[in-house]
């Protein structure tokens, strides 16, 4: 019975993942390995960026709006924010589908999301990355790592640490069923600051982490150390988010640009 319950939980979380995220690793890999009929539009300089802005992300950048005359760094930062806001929305719906999450104290649900969403975003972003660049605009565009690096500081410093993390993370060769449980484990984390009902969340976390361990053993029988390696990634992601939060504050100041209210809520008093 216990084994059946664990398999059910793994399945429920995987189904919630497939249902709620518009992009997943299987889709991203199909595009990145050139197996789609139309390859993504490659953004590698100012000219290709402008073309992409007019077509792929016209709605996002508000082509007729206030950002049209702003510098490239500000426009790219704005696009990153839009993508983050969408993924936070998807993550919220995903979290609600994780058994037990919705019956937690509402303030604890908020705390879990506040601290978990960026770790989850960077873990899932790796699926859209290879060593040369990153899929954007639902896979219709591909922005090169070199172009992002060529931008003016501090915006140029924003993505490079995520690429470095992604290259190591992608070497673990997780699939979407593994990632679904990993993302659930990131969100249901008992040691976030300010949680009220820690015991309840720790029980949920233990359950999910145990299911993750069993799932990895079955899904990757040749990689016996995959589970401890993934636990280490949880710590790496926390560090990545701390650095990112500091960088965003710096960008906000130096570029004189605003943050989306949802992201403001998440970053405020975070670490």
């Amino acid at each position: 019975t216990q084994l059946a319950d664990q398999k059910t939980l793994a399945r429920q979380i995987y189904d919630a993942y497939l249902k709620n995220f518009s992009m997943n690793k299987a889709k991203a890999r199909t595009i990145l390995t050139g197996k789609t009929s139309t390859p993504p539009f490659v953004i590698h300089d100012m000219e290709t960026l402008q073309l992409a802005e007019q077509t792929l992300v016209a709605k996002m950048v508000g082509s007729a709006g206030a950002l049209k005359d702003r510098e490239v760094e500000v426009r790219i930062f704005h696009c990153c924010q839009c993508t983050s806001v969408e993924t936070v929305t998807e993550l919220t719906e995903f979290a609600k589908s994780v058994p037990g999450f919705s019956s937690l104290d509402l303030n604890d649900q908020v705390t879990l999301l506040k601290y978990g969403v960026y770790e989850a975003i960077f873990a899932m972003l790796a699926s859209c990355m290879n060593k040369d660049g990153l899929l954007v605009a639902y896979g219709s565009g591909f922005i090169t790592r070199e172009f992002l690096k060529s931008l003016r500081r501090p915006v140029s410093d924003m993505m490079e640490p995520k690429f470095q993390f992604a290259m190591k993370f992608n070497a673990l060769e997780l699939d979407d069923s593994d990632l679904a449980l990993f993302v659930a484990a990131i969100i249901c984390c008992g040691d976030r600051p300010g949680l009220v009902n820690v015991t309840h969340i720790e029980e949920m976390q233990e359950n999910i982490v145990h299911v993750l361990q069993l799932h990895l053993l079955a899904n990757h029988p040749d990689d016996t150390f995959l589970f401890p390696k993934l636990l280490q990634k949880l710590a790496d992601l926390r560090e990545l988010v701390t650095e990112h939060a500091q960088l965003v504050q710096e960008i906000k100041k130096t570029e004189d640009t605003s943050l989306h209210p949802l992201l403001q809520e998440i970053y405020r008093d975070m670490y």
Binding site: V88, V110, L262
Partner: peptide
């Protein structure tokens, strides 16, 4: 609660933050 108004709203219904 006021500090995380949008997160509360997202958790309680499916309002898109873009529309808020």
């Amino acid at each position: 609660k006021e500090k995380h108004k949008i997160l509360h709203q997202l958790l309680q219904n499916s309002t898109s933050p873009v529309d808020l």
